[in-house]
């Protein structure tokens, strides 16, 4: 039995903790009443968010709005103090660690591009490609043609084919961003969490990145956190504005940027 969370407003009472495993949704990612605080500071405050399968969503918000902490919670890096985080209808993410969540099909790109600098571009992608991830599996694994082709494909998509044998540490900032996106793609996740993909890029690169993400969104669900309004406009997707750890406004970029409160806290003046 599938229950639509939009219609069944779950009461926020303590009994919920016990009911948690029974929460079943149709959405790909479902956050409800999530809160977390660090030493008294509420980084996330009763946050609720729903991402449908195949959806691309842009998240905006001023510094300290809780965007990155939200990603930390979804990917299992931070455990919420309260609330539900449900993936793919019925998997309770709060009970899992980063590795398990990654293997469920959630890929994450960090705010600061993080690649394996001492490995070549090719090896970076190769390690991300879906394959046996156990110790002994990798210890005795042999390069298969299928994986090789997949690496070639992805290097093509992220336009790093010419750089495949360079050390990732030698790439430019923008190239590292793409390499990281490429690694995400290689994981073949159901959901991509992309934190500030356009940071530190030239306008041309930003445009190319937007195209790349739109491409990816055709076959994956994507959540993009970004500051660059031009970039978000180019994506042309539903926007959620966070403020002080909760959702302030949701809708198209025009709607959101017309919202009084958003203008007040975020767009300024």
């Amino acid at each position: 039995m599938l229950i639509d969370p939009m219609e069944t407003q779950l009461p926020a009472d303590p009994v919920k903790a016990i009911e948690r495993p029974q929460v079943v949704t149709q959405s790909l990612l479902y956050l409800d009443g999530v809160s977390v605080s660090f030493d008294g500071f509420r980084a996330i405050n009763n946050l609720s968010l729903i991402i449908a399968p195949g959806e691309m969503r842009a998240i905006i918000g001023p510094n300290g709005a809780g965007k990155t902490t939200m990603m930390d919670i979804i990917t299992g890096k931070t455990k919420p103090d309260a609330g539900d985080v449900i993936f793919d209808g019925q998997i309770d993410l709060t009970q899992l660690d980063e590795t398990a969540i990654a293997n469920l099909g959630i890929g994450r790109k960090f705010q600061k591009p993080t690649v394996f600098e001492m490995h070549t571009v090719e090896v970076n992608i190769e390690m991300a490609v879906k394959a046996d991830r156990t110790v002994f599996g990798t210890l005795f694994s042999r390069q298969s043609a299928a994986i090789g082709r997949r690496v070639d494909d992805i290097l093509g998509i992220v336009r790093l084919g010419d750089h495949r044998n360079r050390l990732a540490g030698d790439l430019s900032h923008g190239q590292k961003q793409w390499l990281e996106i490429g690694m995400l793609l290689a994981q073949d996740p159901k959901l991509l969490l992309v934190d500030e993909p356009a940071a530190g890029m030239t306008d041309v690169e930003t445009g190319a990145t937007a195209d790349l993400l739109k491409d990816i969104a055709r076959t994956h669900s994507v959540v993009v956190v970004e500051h660059d309004m031009g970039f978000i406009r180019e994506l042309g997707v539903k926007v959620t504005c966070l403020h002080e750890g909760s959702v302030l406004a949701e809708g198209s970029l025009d709607q959101v940027s017309a919202d009084e409160r958003v203008i007040e806290v975020y767009l300024g003046r």
Partner: peptide, 17 residues
């Protein structure tokens, strides 16, 4: 080696660090 250089990244790629 990847763990040495970027442990969280390795973890988010789905490896049991």
């Amino acid at each position: 080696i990847a763990i040495r250089d970027a442990e969280p990244r390795t973890r988010f790629l789905g490896y049991r660090v």
